[in-house]
Write a protein that binds this DNA or RNA. Structure first.
Length: 379
RNA sequence: GGAGGGAUAGCGAAGUUGGUCAAACGCGGCGGACUGUAAAUCCGCUCCCAUCGGGUUCGUAGGUUCGAGUCCUACUCCCUCCA
């Protein structure tokens, strides 16, 4: 009996996108889905009640960061991550593999694991597949991620091949170390960068280990979007259709739609929450930098087509004022809106799949958002 | 009335053995970036015109000097203390 089960409901006749349902020990959710990121056991600025109000079904947290603070033992003592942070819906924990990438200046990789320099204290740490698994077992997340290496782009083929093979060996070690397969599902992560042969090899290595779900990692790390889409499209053919597929770290509106069209079921990204705190909003008409002076006297909502709490009650001028004056409410209102926007977008994507018209939806959305403009960039 | 201190770019504030000063730094302003969160962060620009480059600045007016934000004189204003 596995903790995670995927149910394929239907496939979009127009695009091949999958409508599905993932069942977890803390309830189920429909896919394709976007998962807000709450690295330190909190989606920055948002209470669990607010997350529920915008229909967040599953959120992320992070092994590396919770290991450092407060320590997985404290979370376990609190009764697990769900109880600790007062979130009773599903939680997915990333393994720390992304920190191998993002903290690359502070770490050293070897076969057994990765030496880190604690980015807060400078203390020397050693994270292994076994340790990352043990921490996630202690945290009690519904979906755990295998400890992988997320290599940078670009990387030499030779380096990537070694990395992919090591990640596969690590995945096997994670599986072996996993103490609670009945309560927590462990996903494998396909790597391989921009190299098809390595993507294929990685996918085959991992599927032979039979994980309850598979992630595609190592994308959205600086490569062109065409390469990302190509790699996603190429990789999914080697993944089983009866398991969920998770494209890690992707959260721009266009990439979510294009990912769903290529058979992706789950996405996560810090983008909506991070750019919200920095004063950029996602709207049906494209990105809006509310900090800009031109909004100083704009008393319309962030997105006229949005019915979230922020858009129903506050103006661009007011939110600009809050952001410019470093008022905490500004961060909350913008974060709320951006998450609502992506969650709502995915709801529309699911509806479009049900109606076999995701291709049409994509066209309409891209047109409004401005992706079709010749000078479209950085969405 | 007397003694002393000070006036630097939108604001605050460095700079006073005269040259390497269009003038540090902070704030403010303007713009950009952000994709499994070292992020309420980071990066540019911020006297005027301009592609190089040029033109005007450091309270005001003179002066010394090859050269002055930096030295001298007068004036204006501000602050502190004494009458």
């Amino acid at each position: 009996m596995t903790a995670i089960r995927y149910e394929l409901i239907k496939t979009c006749k127009q695009t091949g996108a999958r409508l599905g349902r993932v069942h977890t020990p803390h309830g189920s959710f429909e896919t394709p889905i976007f998962m807000p990121v709450g690295t330190l056991a909190t989606v920055k600025t948002m209470t669990p009640e607010e997350l529920k109000a915008i229909n967040a079904e599953i959120i992320l947290s992070n092994t590396y960061h919770l290991w450092l603070r407060p320590g997985e033992d404290i979370v376990q003592e609190a009764g697990g991550l769900h109880q600790f942070m007062n979130w009773d819906r599903p939680i997915l924990t990333d393994s720390g593999g992304f920190q191998v990438f993002s903290l690359s200046d502070l770490r050293e990789i070897e076969e057994k694991g990765v030496h880190f320099r604690n980015h807060i204290s400078g203390e020397k740490l050693f994270l292994t597949p076994e340790k990352a698994t043990q921490i996630q077992n202690a945290l009690g997340s519904d979906i755990m991620m295998a400890f992988d290496e997320c290599p940078p782009f670009p990387a030499e083929h030779k380096y990537m091949k070694d990395s992919v093979e090591r990640t596969s060996r690590w995945a096997e070690r994670c599986l072996a170390a996993h103490q609670r397969p009945e309560d927590q599902g462990l996903f494998g992560i396909v790597q391989g960068g921009e190299y098809k042969d390595l993507r294929k090899q990685s996918a085959q290595d991992l599927t032979s280990l039979d994980f309850p779900g598979y992630a595609i990692g190592g994308l959205s790390v600086g490569e062109p979007k065409e390469i990302m889409n190509e790699m996603v499209e190429y990789t999914t053919q080697f993944l089983p259709t009866d398991k969920p597929r998770y494209l890690m770290g992707v959260g721009s509106a266009d990439s979510l739609i294009d990912g769903a069209i290529r058979g992706i079921d789950m996405f996560d990204c810090v983008l909506p929450t991070r750019i919200a705190r920095n004063g950029t909003l996602m709207t049906s008409q494209g990105r809006l930098v509310v900090r800009n002076a031109k909004f100083a006297r704009d008393f319309s909502p962030l997105d006229p087509n949005c019915d979230c709490y922020t858009c129903k009650n506050y103006t661009r001028a007011y939110i600009r004022h809050l952001i410019k004056t470093d008022e905490i409410l500004g961060l909350r209102l913008t974060t709320y809106h951006n998450l609502y926007f992506l969650l709502n977008l995915m709801e529309q994507v699911r509806e479009a799949i049900k109606a076999d018209r995701l291709g049409d939806f994509r066209e309409e959305f891209f047109e409004n958002y401005g992706f079709n403009k010749p000078d479209a960039k950085n969405f």
